[in-house]
Design a binder for these strands. Structure first.
Lengths: 192, 192
DNA sequence: CGGATCGTTGATCAACTTCAACGGTCGTGG
DNA sequence: CCACGACCGTTGAAGTTGATCAACGATCCG
């Protein structure tokens, strides 16, 4: 059994013995997924938390007009779920789907609880992850409220170039909160 | 010494002995503040995490045109800081200021670290707080990307009526990401 | 009472969306 | 391996939402 990306990631916070690493991993299920596979659907109970070892997931919803809108991407070493619905064990407000073929770990709510009880260190790990994620979300809201869509695109492209190359343009547009048509126009302007 | 709102709040997660409660509180400083007092300034090291016992704080920044834009409010039983800057102990991207006269607890980064080491239960408490906060931030981004400014206002007013009454209108406008003039127009439309 | 601050109004303007149409590309089945 | 269809990116015209600006009233506080 090769060493998991999850264990590597946890070990950026603290060291695990081989036994601990193996036992922690045993709480998770492993999934090898193709492009556009669905992991969670809106309205369904949200009972899984996902960790991306390789590939890319998106958290999205469908608006009144039937358009798919991406709220969050998760690439290597990111955690993803509808966190409110997961914590409260209620139906999800979002869909989760693979953007590329991906390797993903999942853990159910009850297993997650058990894991945290058995390994209190993991509370620290998740506390730190969520603290960062919340801080980043506040920064993102700051950007949304201060940048034009055009500035938004350039900022994002300059700060996350791999991202922009990796994700199809209509998904990027959706994530940035503008239409594919307008994004196309922005890119054109830039060239002249 | 009267029982603190913070202790009450922690005890919604798990029970504390009297001794524990007192000792946990000893990590915090207490502040009684007037309206419009500044607790954190952009560019300054962010070394404090705040808990609102009573009153209201805002996290805001100043945009290119010099306008103050509110990214987050914190009322009773909310935690607030620039979480990214706090965790990394770097200069802040935001200001924090009282909206009303308030009673606030603060804890420094190093004291916070000590507290978490001494009371591992507190890791669980903060993990849960941040998980909720991050989930709520994702929902907020969902709303930003699916509702018009008008719908945004009505949604917010219907779901958080106390909030709308309590906060001055120009701050509410700033938080919702629209201009005071347009908010005024929306409210007028509604009456006819 | 006086000044500053906040909410309102209406006119003008810019940013961004919507819609419809077209061309390119990718992947799938024959 | 080719051909076809579906999907994606692009273009341009027209329409809408919401911002900006300037001015006026109201209210709050010293």
């Amino acid at each position: 059994m090769h060493k998991s990306a999850l264990i590597d990631h946890i070990e950026t916070s603290f060291v695990l013995s081989e036994g601990e690493a193996a036992e922690i991993l045993s709480y998770f299920d492993f999934h090898k997924l193709k492009k556009k596979e669905t992991l969670l659907s809106a309205g369904k109970l949200c009972d899984k938390l996902f960790f991306v070892e390789k590939g890319c997931l998106q958290l999205y919803f469908i608006d009144d007009l039937g358009n798919q809108k991406t709220t969050q991407f998760a690439m290597e070493n990111w955690w993803l779920t509808d966190f409110l619905a997961f914590q409260n064990q209620t139906p999800s407000n979002f869909y989760i789907e693979t953007v590329e073929k991906s390797k993903v770990l999942s853990i159910s709510f009850s297993k997650h609880q058990e894991l945290l009880e058995k390994y209190p260190k993991m509370e620290k790990y998740f506390r730190s992850i969520y603290e960062k994620a919340y801080g980043a979300a506040l920064m993102r809201i700051k950007f949304i409220n201060s940048l034009s869509k055009e500035e938004m695109y350039f900022m994002f492209r300059d700060n996350f170039p791999e991202f922009v190359q990796r994700v199809p343009q209509y998904l990027l547009a959706s994530f940035l909160g503008l239409t594919p048509e307008y994004l196309s126009e922005i890119k054109k302007k830039q060239l002249s």
